[in-house]
Design a protein around this nucleic acid. Structure first.
Lengths: 245, 245
DNA sequence: CCAAAAGTGTTTCTCATACACCCATGT
DNA sequence: ACATGGGTGTATGAGAAACACTTTTGG
């Protein structure tokens, strides 16, 4: 691929995808993790968590592999998957726990795995209670309760969050991927607050919503709440796309 | 790497890095390309251009490989290299020209090459007239004169430009990587104009410069120009880093 | 003195921020 | 009636944008 001097190219690389799937429950951001069962050096069984991921197969490209992982897990299709970073450090597989687990899982010695990290923002209610979540022992874990994960998956999540914050600025529509189809102003505001880690003034926020022509106030209100019912809003993708040209 | 059903993982992947090296000559953006010599289906020799790149070697990670490519070519060290996107589509190596060239260059059948694209912004004057540029038959090509390149390298350059525009917003200091150490207001303005593809009002721009505390006016002026001499400015990284906390 | 580019101020508008009270509903 | 969260308007300041003329220098 180059006309430089030739040394030994790295053959037999392993390429994987890992998916950071983020949901929002109206209060907190959650990440979708799958359970991993392994044995430590003393032969003791341990449980921990990891990001859903997979090596890539011969008949698919990276986007396809990420899509497959996400679909198997959540049953969701047509979600927006964004490739946001590659992790290729040699010591991402240096932990003996991880090495042992890998060699059992892949039945081969693994030198290094280059992983392409994907981010997806999903409606947590649509991806919840799916039987596949049980099959894969998957769980929604609040971001602030994520423990030590396999490999460098904690790092990958951190980078994903940095990416989202930047991405939202340029493409605010992705926020609505996290919210139910009908949502209240409070939900949207909480989402902003939790993403940027600071409080937002309620009145200014209502003005902001009013100025977003693609956030449509509905004639529908909350029901059965023990206080004034909040109005529902919906996101209009067509209007959004128009106003963004 | 996963606990999903197992199909055949893709072994023997090839992983490469490709570097989009951008320079600015005071008027236009240029990209560093290397010449490629191949044979078409009729056995005729053809010349075209490609991005500098390389497969990765066993003893290096991706950032290291990108660094090596850039250093061999330009002699530059300690430049800021940003990994900005992965290209993994199967048909990025579908052009018969490219297939033939690859098989000759790598002396093996190549199914697919996943490439990690890097972006680097450099001072064109420091990386010009380097003897290595001749050794590798490298050339600075104005962005608007780039012809059909090997593989999907045109696409990679397009994506690189999108990336820069976003990146500048968050990290304006990278603009000064493109300019000489001493630069005029015009040069800086042209850089903005060419990046965003629109004209900027001169007076407003001077105000903008004044407000950027990290752009220091010098007591030095242009010499030997047939009109009023422009003042030189310099970029102060220390001040920049302070004002960004 | 002419050509060519450098440099300079004021006004206007938009947008972000700060801030406090009344409204609707269920218990 | 009260507790709970929903919803509203105004005033201020900062930064972006529009706009035209004078200055310096070499030829």
């Amino acid at each position: 691929m180059n006309n430089m001097e030739h040394k030994i190219p790295l053959a037999n690389n392993h390429i994987s995808v890992d998916c950071v799937v983020i949901g929002f429950d109206g209060e907190k951001l959650k990440v979708l993790l799958v359970r991993r069962i392994g044995e430590d050096s003393g032969g003791e069984v341990f449980h921990d968590m990891k990001l859903p991921g997979s090596l890539i197969y011969v008949d698919e490209d990276l986007d396809g592999a990420a899509m497959r992982v996400l679909n198997q897990l959540t049953g969701l299709k047509n979600v927006n998957l964004m490739q946001f970073k590659v992790f290729s450090s040699k010591d991402r597989t240096k932990n003996p726990k991880d090495v042992r687990w890998l060699e059992r899982a892949e039945k081969a010695k693994v030198e290094r795995i280059v992983t392409i990290a994907y981010l997806s923002l999903v409606k947590i209610d649509r991806a919840l209670n799916n039987k596949n979540l049980n099959n894969f022992q998957a769980e929604w874990v609040p971001l602030d309760e994520v423990k030590d994960l396999a490999f460098d998956h904690n790092l990958i999540i951190d980078e994903a969050m940095k990416f989202i914050r930047q991405y939202v600025e340029f493409n605010p529509s992705c926020l609505f991927d996290l919210l139910p189809r009908k949502f209240t102003a409070l939900q949207l505001r909480m989402l902003y607050e939790v993403l940027y880690g600071k409080r937002i003034d309620v009145r200014n926020f209502h003005k902001k919503i009013t100025m977003m022509e693609y956030v449509i106030p509905m004639d529908e209100y909350q029901q059965g709440v023990s206080h004034r019912a909040a109005r529902f809003y919906k996101f209009d993708k067509k209007i959004y796309n128009k106003t963004r040209r």
